[in-house]
Amino acid sequence: MKVDGHETEAAGTLLDVILALGIDLPHLCKDDNLPPIGACRTCLVEADGRIVAACHTPAAAVQEVQTRSVRAIELRQAVLRLTARMHGREPDVSGGPRSGELWAAYAAHGLERPSYPSRPRSAVDLSSPFFEFHEEPCILCGRCVVACQQLQHIGAIGIAGTATSARVTAGAAVAFAESACTACGSCVAACPTHALRPKPLRATHRPGDARGEEG
């Protein structure tokens, strides 16, 4: 098959092939080691003239892929602008370990400020001693949920509600600390914005720790 004119072997999904060639393509809802979700739609490419999401399109069925056709770029730009709608403000990219992916993709597509009217959300969950959830930058990509349900098989979180009511939800709409969450942190690791972010790693520093006297 050919990708942007390069001959290459068709193995796995189009996204696998594209990333293996070192081509920069956003894929906000796709984790390297997790099954495709298909939610963010930021990995759109033109495959044999059709627009497809690279993350869940098998490479074997495709002969020619254009990641940088005008059509593909326009559509990705539009999807990214819709995604940015959910961001209230410029995020602190140093938040989570993988945060910053949205704004990197934004910049790579020549976009600047969010252009659609924003749809701000403001829920915050600080209940876990290990990490925090800030709904504002959450783009509902679902990576955290897949990490929780399909990687760790804990099932502490889901996405509850439909349409614009959909939100990342612990348990039956309870705080993280009251859910089945075991704080494995896979959701934090997976988050491409900084909606889920670790609290700073801290040692205890009270005197007498060695004797287990704290608390």
């Binding site: 298909g38 939610a39 963010c40 739609r41 930021t42 539009a78 999807v79 819709l82 995604t83 709608r85 959910m86 659609y116 009217p117 749809r119 783009i139 509902l140 679902g142 996405i159 509600g161 439909t162 349409a163 614009t164 009511s165 959909a166």
Partner: peptide, 18 residues
């Protein structure tokens, strides 16, 4: 269509109400 969007993918969830 906006109300009945399941909320999974960005274009439909964000685009339909717009």
């Amino acid at each position: 269509n906006a109300e009945q969007s399941c909320g999974k993918c960005t274009p439909c969830r964000e685009g339909a109400p717009l």
